[in-house]
Design a protein around this nucleic acid. Structure first.
Lengths: 185, 185
DNA sequence: GTCTATAATTTGATAGAC
DNA sequence: GTCTATCAAATTATAGAC
């Protein structure tokens, strides 16, 4: 992927995170780059291709970031804090939601490949959280840890959605206070 | 609002909950009623009017339902269970998300009036939950109860989003197990 | 209250020149 | 790799007949 393609994906990611997949357009991306929409089609033949590129890169980055956290061998509590911070940074100080939240909400409207990519993103987060929970509670079995992981991830997603809807970053901070409650249960 | 207008709002609500505000169209609603889109415009001059009608009715129904639960004087735990059930019923056995979740995700794209309506819907739920939490924990101050309310509501929203994204109703059931954990903290 | 007809705009996408 | 030009379709919305 060359530099222009990369910038197209950057802008598409921002547009998806802010307006959603249904509402963003090739012409809008093109205008930001001072080129024509036909040129965007040169790099990504269809909207589905561009959307998939955004989703794939988004997941790949999380995969790297999550592995990085795991390698640092910090405590589960601190590791979870780092993850929360990654999400916090995405939404703070802007109208942006996250790619994950927007594509999750629009799941029924997405091309199949992007749907699968989103499910993989969810699974990546859940699996990582599950391992973290088992480090914190070595006696817990996989099933119980997986359930706890879903609770924490749901909380995180809901916290972001509420904060953006209410335009109130405290909403996020208040909601995620429950993350450590759930981790330590 | 006459019968046709009511059915238009019904279909618009389903369309918004399934595809979102950006993606639903007057023609689609009209087709389901075997009329033309111009006739839909007779009942609701603009898309913003129709969207607002959906949001207002949605909130009004919750207002009634929540008051009803409060009147029944059941325990906070059981009352919370009834609320969870209302959300569960909306999403179970279909591709539907909830109106609240879809409009929350699309908040940046919505006409101002619908944005305000959505914030009011959030506030309605939070306030109700806060009162419920204070019944369960009479010693808790308002601020702490409000924070706990946000946690529970975030969890509920995230649980629905995850279940629909993963097409896995167990995701919802697993995630909302944390509701009682948070209530009893 | 519903229709036909249509305007004005936007969108995803393609053909072909440069 | 970007452009012009264009297509086909969809969208919100309005005018005016019935």
């Amino acid at each position: 992927m060359n530099e222009t393609a990369e910038r197209i994906v950057d802008l598409a990611e921002l547009a998806i995170a802010t307006k959603g997949y249904s509402a963003f357009s090739f012409r809008e991306i093109a205008a930001h780059l001072d080129i024509k929409s036909a040129s965007v089609h040169y790099h990504f033949p269809t909207k589905a291709h561009l959307g998939l590129a955004v989703a794939e890169r988004y997941r790949a980055r999380y995969e790297v970031a999550l592995q990085q956290i795991a390698r640092e061998q910090i405590s589960p509590i601190n590791a979870l804090d780092v993850l929360v911070n990654i999400y916090r940074q995405q939404i703070s100080g802007s109208e942006r939601m996250t790619v994950c939240m927007m594509l999750a909400a629009e799941i029924n409207q997405l091309p199949r490949e992007i749907q699968l990519e989103m499910r993989a993103f969810y699974q990546l987060n859940i699996t990582w959280l599950q391992a973290l929970i088992q480090r914190q509670h070595p006696q817990l079995n996989v099933g119980a840890a997986s359930i706890r992981a879903r609770q924490i991830f749901a909380l995180l997603q809901g916290a972001m959605m509420g904060a953006k809807t209410q335009k109130d970053e405290d909403y996020f901070e208040h909601a995620i206070q429950a993350v450590s409650i759930l981790l330590n249960q």
